[in-house]
């Protein structure tokens, strides 16, 4: 059936051409532009040699790691709980927890402002309780809150889907062998959910690395890599540096996802 094989290639071709023209070629061009600045290859090493860039990279990585850890713990507990227990209102809770699934970063930023901004709920409550108005939306803490907010819905969905496939008989077997609840969680549930944790965690990580809308809404001064790139590009018109930095950011994020995918043995993708 070699004729069919040609036809299949024909079907693949439009996507392939589009992709080559608007992604692969531009990415190559981006790499090339990164080299055209004063520093040449130095633009690519600047991310570790330049103290400012390096500190941005470190804080971005730190933020991404913290977001991932917090999201996994929160969504792990809530997701397993909702999957394992059926009670009236369960469906409504799941619907509410997954509602913000498609909020873009800018809207997430606004949600953080509603909670922790100058006119936010947390500030009002804290002033009422202690007299002090707590406002942290426009800082790294606000960004952290936003990324966790963004990541919870999709992570809960992933965890719930994985928990559904966990065989309850494994837990029963562990219990029959005398395992305590904690041992069951440690020895059965967490290992069983590991692939889901890895893939969902990778998405959280990639989001926190590359997302831009939330930071943009909260404050342009937050020292994370996407904001640095944006500033270099628009305010400093330093296109070579912006290109090099975004190429490095893209490469780092892609590598993290690829490694996670190999580890989890399934496909992983981020949205943002």
């Amino acid at each position: 059936m070699t004729r069919d094989s040609y036809r299949l290639t024909t079907l693949l071709l439009p996507a392939g051409i589009f992709f080559a023209a608007f992604f692969l070629l531009p990415l190559a061009q981006l790499f090339h532009i990164g080299l055209t600045g004063k520093q040449g290859w130095g633009a690519y090493t600047a991310i570790v040699t330049d103290r400012n860039y390096f500190s941005s990279l470190v804080s971005t990585l730190g933020l991404a790691a913290a977001t991932t850890a917090a999201t996994l713990i929160i969504s792990g507990i809530a997701g397993v709980f909702l999957q394992r227990n059926r009670f009236p209102g369960n469906g409504a809770l799941v619907a509410m927890l997954t509602f913000p699934l498609a909020f873009p970063g800018v809207v997430i930023g606004f949600m953080v402002i509603m909670l922790a901004g100058r006119q936010g709920l947390i500030g009002d409550v804290s002033r009422w309780l202690t007299g002090d108005k707590i406002v942290f939306a426009y800082s790294m803490a606000g960004l952290f809150m936003g990324y966790v907010y963004f990541s919870i819905p999709r992570t809960i969905l992933t965890v719930m889907a994985a928990a559904e496939k966990l065989d309850p008989k494994l837990e029963e077997a562990a219990r029959s062998l005398g395992a305590s609840t904690w041992r069951v969680v440690l020895d059965v549930i967490i290992p069983g959910l590991k692939p889901a944790f890895i893939s969902a965690g990778a998405i959280c990580f990639a989001t926190a690395m590359g997302a831009f809308g939330t930071a943009f809404t909260l404050a342009t001064r937050i020292n994370v890599l996407p904001m640095v790139i944006y500033t270099e590009f628009t305010l400093e018109a330093n296109i070579a540096t912006a290109a090099a930095l975004s190429f490095v950011l893209g490469a780092v994020t892609w590598v993290v996802l690829a490694v996670a995918r190999t580890a989890a043995g399934s496909t992983v993708a981020a949205a943002g």
Binding site: L27, M209, G210, W254, L257
Partner: peptide, 17 residues
Amino acid sequence: MPVAVPGLATALALIVT
């Protein structure tokens, strides 16, 4: 890849090309 690579990078790549 366009999902994994930050949108900012993709957008810059499109602009420079």
